[in-house]
Amino acid sequence: MNNDIIGLIGDNGAGKTTFLKIIASLISIDSGESNLPLQEKIGVVFDQLPFPGSLSIYELEKVMKRLFSTWEAEKFHNYINLFKLPLKTPVKKFSKGMSMKLNIAVSLSHQAQILLLDELTSGLDPLVRIDILQLIQDYVRENNATVVMSTHILDDIDKIATKVVLMHNGKFVLQKEMKDIPDMHYLEKKFKEILEKQGEN
């Protein structure tokens, strides 16, 4: 599964975010088993900043250095400079787009083998969105990593995903290689068929 970017799509309430939180061990499961790497090998980007709002990036990095034995300070600062984020401003003052960029910078700076990305490009303008997707592709290729990316933006899936998984009512109802999907209209049609079938049942 290495070097895969898995696009996770579905309707609101399908269970996408819950599934990612289970992989990240943020939610416990009642049954079953998982075979995942150590937590420091998992990078997580959710819609909300998981850091104390009073911290600045300068202060936050000190925490990250203690939290991750694999922390790469130079790489982190390269991302911060790329995103033009202020080092000494409390992160609670960041816009949604700035918060997402900080989330991404942290997740890409500790040699994560698995990246869990929930609505990665939410709040980003189109040009920044393209740059972020390219960053993710580069990271996967350079680090032999795997990405699970939840999104409502099918264009993001089309641009970088190698596989797609469709969720509905907490279940995986469709799994396909992107090379077997002719276009995004195919996914929209399949999803509509699944919803109509569920309605009949």
Rank of each mutant, 00 (worst) to 15 (best):
T146R: 06
R141L: 13
D4F: 10
G123M: 01
K96Q: 09
Y58I: 12
S25V: 00
K190R: 01
N81T: 06
F19R: 00
S69K: 15
I5N: 11
D118T: 02
H77G: 04
E61Y: 10
E61K: 12
S28H: 09
G123S: 06
L115F: 07
E188H: 05
Q198Y: 11
R141Y: 13
D125R: 07
K93Q: 11
N3R: 15
L135P: 05
I157N: 07
L133D: 08
N103E: 03
I27W: 10
V148G: 06
H185E: 09
L38E: 15
K159S: 05
D11R: 12
I22W: 10
I27S: 10
K16E: 12
K62D: 15
K189G: 02
I29C: 00
N81R: 11
G7I: 12
S107M: 03
I29E: 03
L166D: 03
V91R: 02
Q39W: 07
S95W: 05
N12P: 10
F68L: 11
Q113F: 00
V91W: 04
V165A: 11
N2Y: 13
R141S: 12
G32D: 09
S109K: 03
K62A: 15
P126S: 01
A24Y: 13
L195A: 08
L116N: 00
E142W: 09
D131L: 08
L26K: 09
V91S: 04
S122G: 04
F83G: 07
I136C: 04
F76R: 06
Y139A: 08
I29N: 02
L49D: 14
V140P: 04
V91D: 07
N201P: 02
Y58W: 13
M149V: 08
I153K: 08
V106A: 06
M98L: 02
S28P: 02
M1W: 09
I42T: 14
N169Q: 13
T89F: 02
I6M: 12
D158V: 09
H185W: 00
S109C: 02
L174G: 00
Y139C: 06
I57D: 14
D11A: 15
G199K: 15
E61D: 13
K88R: 13
S99Y: 01
T70K: 10
P86H: 04
I104G: 07
M100G: 07
A112W: 03
G170A: 04
L85A: 05
D138S: 13
I181V: 14
N78S: 10
E40Y: 12
R141G: 01
K88C: 06
T89H: 03
G13P: 07
N35V: 02
T121V: 05
H152P: 03
G97D: 01
L174N: 01
Y186C: 00
H110E: 03
A161Q: 05
G32Y: 02
E193I: 10
A145F: 06
L102F: 06
E59L: 14
L115H: 04
F191Q: 07
V63L: 15
L26S: 04
L36N: 07
V63F: 14
Y58K: 15
S122H: 02
L87R: 06
E188A: 11
P182I: 14
K190Q: 13
D183P: 00
E193R: 00
L195Q: 13
Q175H: 03
I157Q: 07
K159H: 04
F76Q: 05
I104M: 04
I42F: 06
E196N: 12
